[in-house]
Simulated scan of single mutants.
Amino acid sequence: MISYSIAIRTLGKAGKKYQKLLNSITKLNVQPEKIIVVLPEGYKPPVEKIGTECFVYSKKGMIPQRLFALQYITSEYTLFCDDDVELSADFIEKLAEPLKSGRFDCSAGPLLEFFPPKGKKYLLASVLGGACVMLHGKKDTYVRILKTGGWSYNDSIDTSSHRIYKTESLPGTCFFIRTEAMKHVRFEDEMWAEKNGYSAFEDRILFYKLQNNGHHSCVVSDAKYLHNDAKTSTQTLRTEPVYAAAYNHYVFWYRHIYQCTSNVLNKGWEKLCIWHYIQMQKLYQKVLMRAGRSNTDLNAAMKQGFQDAKKYVKSTEYKCIPSVVIKE
């Protein structure tokens, strides 16, 4: 018996894609104890319904909507998902297996579409320091966080076989977690990521914080699901996500990497890494502008994001945020 509930965050606008999620839930081999659907305050619930879900309302935001469901859940495990995924019938059993072994507190299926495609885009991502193919550890690792704040990934995942890969980060699209671990990690302390109206890297922040607090995550290679990507929240944004990506990247690096390091030499290396990352981002924006694929507003937004983040981590407001590593 697997004691779990499902928490879905939505704006109620995913339509047919949300219906596909609901249909897949009804076909799961192991049914949830509860289905909690979290909408922002003032939003109408979707017309698509199963009939057993509970609609609740929170402040709008990726993090607030994710956390709000926890106060209604008493199950041992929780499946957190967005409103645009489809789950395979045996999804829950496969994700529960590594958690029951005691080695991991969080699991997910592979979402390989999030990896940079091979070719020019891969080379570009590697040079920029944001993402690169893992050079070692491919036998047992899915994603590793780099000292730039970026990540390296395993490009050799075989979804046709059953394997468990440890990981330091995951897409927040869909994951299965021990409920007490989610509560223990105090994700509410990371609300700074919502400051700019676009919570860039909120998944990286969550899973690496779990890692820093001894709650290990994994990917089950054959736990399959589809990501239909409703794209309801950022279609009209331009400078906002560019600014937020720069801002959140720097604060994530400072808070979850630099401040979690005690060795002076390692801290020096991490400073060099983030300096390299920022310089490469600035260079990339210049290249894009010359190619007509960016503009001065986007370039200015990126620079301002990094500048404001550096000021923020020295502010009184930031110093009031509890440490990443939770002391009992």
Rank of each mutant, 00 (worst) to 15 (best):
L79F: 02
W192G: 01
D84R: 02
V220F: 03
V143M: 09
Y77T: 03
P171S: 15
K231A: 13
Y250G: 04
P117C: 00
M1L: 10
F55H: 00
I164T: 08
M280S: 15
L210Q: 07
M280C: 11
A108E: 06
A131W: 08
V143F: 11
C260A: 01
R204W: 13
L283A: 14
K319H: 09
I6N: 00
G172H: 03
L123S: 13
R9S: 08
C260D: 05
T296F: 15
I6A: 01
V220S: 01
K120W: 12
V38S: 00
W269L: 15
N299A: 15
R178M: 13
D203W: 11
H249R: 13
M1V: 14
S101D: 13
G109I: 12
K13T: 14
G102H: 11
R144C: 04
P110E: 10
H227R: 06
Q31Y: 09
H256N: 11
Q285M: 14
T239I: 12
P64E: 03
I35L: 11
N263I: 07
N196R: 14
K183L: 13
Y243K: 02
I36G: 00
L272V: 15
S152K: 11
L298P: 00
G150P: 01
K139S: 14
T296D: 15
P46F: 08
K100T: 05
D297C: 15
V219Q: 06
I145Q: 05
S169C: 08
K310E: 08
A96L: 07
Y4Q: 03
S58Q: 06
K319W: 12
A108H: 00
I145D: 03
G109E: 02
V133F: 05
A69Y: 05
A125T: 09
I177K: 03
L272I: 15
I25K: 00
R186Q: 12
E113V: 12
Q19N: 13
S315A: 05
R293I: 10
K138T: 13
Q307L: 14
L112C: 03
N248K: 06
T316N: 10
G102F: 09
F201G: 04
T239L: 10
Q19Y: 07
T261I: 12
V185S: 02
N295C: 15
P45M: 06
P32K: 09
P241T: 05
N23P: 04
W253D: 00
G172V: 12
K147R: 08
S169K: 00
V264Y: 09
A291H: 10
R238C: 11
Y243P: 00
L226V: 09
Y284L: 12
T167S: 12
P171V: 09
H136Q: 07
H162N: 12
S294T: 05
E41I: 13
